[in-house]
C-alpha cells in the first residue's frame, strides 16, 4: 500500500522542529509499524537524506523503548500493543499517518521522535524498590505465603513496561499510572508493605518535581496502556498516599 507519512523532525533538543511529509510505497500489511519506519529510513539513507531517529529495541512489546504517537494515539490505533507490535494491516492504502514523539515537559525531545524518559528512572530511584540487600540471605521464598489474588494483582501491576504511553496520552501529561503501578505492586506484597508509606510519599514527590501534570481521572492512560494497567492502581496509590500522608 501507499502511505503519506507526516513525521515530526527536530534536529536536536534546542531545534524548533516541524512536521514533514514523506510519501512511501510498497508497504505490506504484515509489516510491523517499525519495519515500515525501517523501510523509510533505508530509502532516506540511500537517497542521501537523514533518517528519522526513533527509539526501539526488543520489537516484541516488552522493553518499552518504542514510543510513537501515531495518528493521535499513543502506540497507534490498535489496543494492547506497543508501536513495535502494531501492524500495518491496521491502516489502509492511501492513509495519511501522523507520527509524533511523546509530548510532555518531563519527556523532552532529544531528536526527531526520540524523547528523554529518564524522569521515570528518577522516580524509581526515589522509592521503586524493596530495601533488601542482595546477599541472598533472605528468608526462604515460601516462608511467607501470599494470597494468589494479591500475587496476581501485584503481577498485573508489575507488567508495566515504562514506555510512557500513559503520560503521552494523558491530557495533563500525568505519570500517575506509571507510578501507581509500581506503588501498587509493592504495596500488595508483604515484602513491600514495610516501607509502603515512605515509598509512596517519595515517589509522588519526585513525580511532581519532574514536572508531570496532575491526574484528573480521565482514564485515557488505561485505554492507551499497551499492558492494560488498570486505573484501580491509581486508586490504590491514592489510598496509600492518603494513608502515608495522614499517619507519617
Amino acid at each position: 500500500m501507499k502511505l503519506n507519512l507526516k513525521i515530526w523532525r527536530q534536529n536536536g533538543p534546542q531545534d524548533k522542529g516541524e512536521m514533514k511529509t514523506y510519501p512511501i510505497d510498497g508497504v505490506d500489511g504484515d509489516m510491523s509499524f517499525l519495519e515500515m519506519m525501517d523501510m523509510l529510513n533505508n530509502q532516506l539513507v540511500e537517497s542521501g537524506e537523514s533518517p528519522v531517529a526513533f527509539d526501539h529495541d526488543c520489537r516484541e512489546g516488552i522493553c518499552g523503548m518504542c514510543s510513537l504517537y501515531i495518528n493521535g494515539e499513543a502506540h497507534g490505533p490498535d489496543r494492547g500493543v506497543t508501536t513495535c507490535q502494531l501492524h500495518m494491516r491496521k491502516f489502509n492504502d492511501g492513509d495519511t499517518i501522523y507520527i509524533e514523539p511523546w509530548r510532555a515537559k518531563a519527556f523532552p525531545v532529544i531528536k526527531d521522535l526520540v524523547v528523554d524518559r529518564s524522569s521515570f528512572d528518577r522516580i524509581m530511584n526515589s522509592g521503586g524498590f524493596v530495601s533488601v540487600n542482595t546477599s541472598g540471605n533472605t528468608v526462604d521464598a515460601n516462608s511467607i505465603p501470599i494470597p494468589k489474588d494479591d500475587a496476581d494483582k501485584a503481577f498485573e501491576a508489575a507488567t508495566c513496561i515504562g514506555c510512557g504511553a500513559c503520560v503521552a496520552s494523558c491530557k495533563n501529561a500525568s505519570a500517575m499510572l506509571f507510578v501507581s503501578a509500581k506503588v501498587s505492586q509493592l504495596s500488595l506484597l508483604p515484602q513491600g508493605k514495610v516501607e509502603a508509606k515512605e515509598r509512596v510519599l517519595n515517589m509522588v514527590q519526585t513525580m511532581d518535581d519532574e514536572g508531570f501534570g496532575n491526574c484528573t481521572n480521565t482514564g485515557a492512560c488505561e485505554v492507551e496502556c499497551p499492558k492494560g494497567i488498570s486505573l484501580e492502581n491509581i486508586a490504590r496509590m491514592n489510598r496509600e498516599y492518603l494513608k502515608g500522608a495522614l499517619t507519617k
Binding site: 507526516k6 515530526w8 512536521m19 504517537y69 495518528n71 493521535g72 494515539e73 490505533p77 501522523y98 509524533e100 509530548r103 510532555a104 515537559k105 518531563a106 496520552s169 491530557k171 495533563n172 501529561a173 500525568s174 514536572g211 508531570f212 501534570g213 496532575n214 484528573t216 480521565t218 482514564g219 485515557a220 485505554v223 492507551e224
Partner: peptide, 18 residues
C-alpha cells in the same frame, strides 16, 4: 497541567480514550 505539556500534538484523538 497545561505547563506539563508545553507542545501540543499536531494530531490528537483524545476522544478515542476518554
Amino acid at each position: 497541567n497545561k505547563k506539563a505539556r508545553p507542545t501540543n500534538y499536531a494530531m490528537n484523538k483524545p476522544n478515542t480514550n476518554s
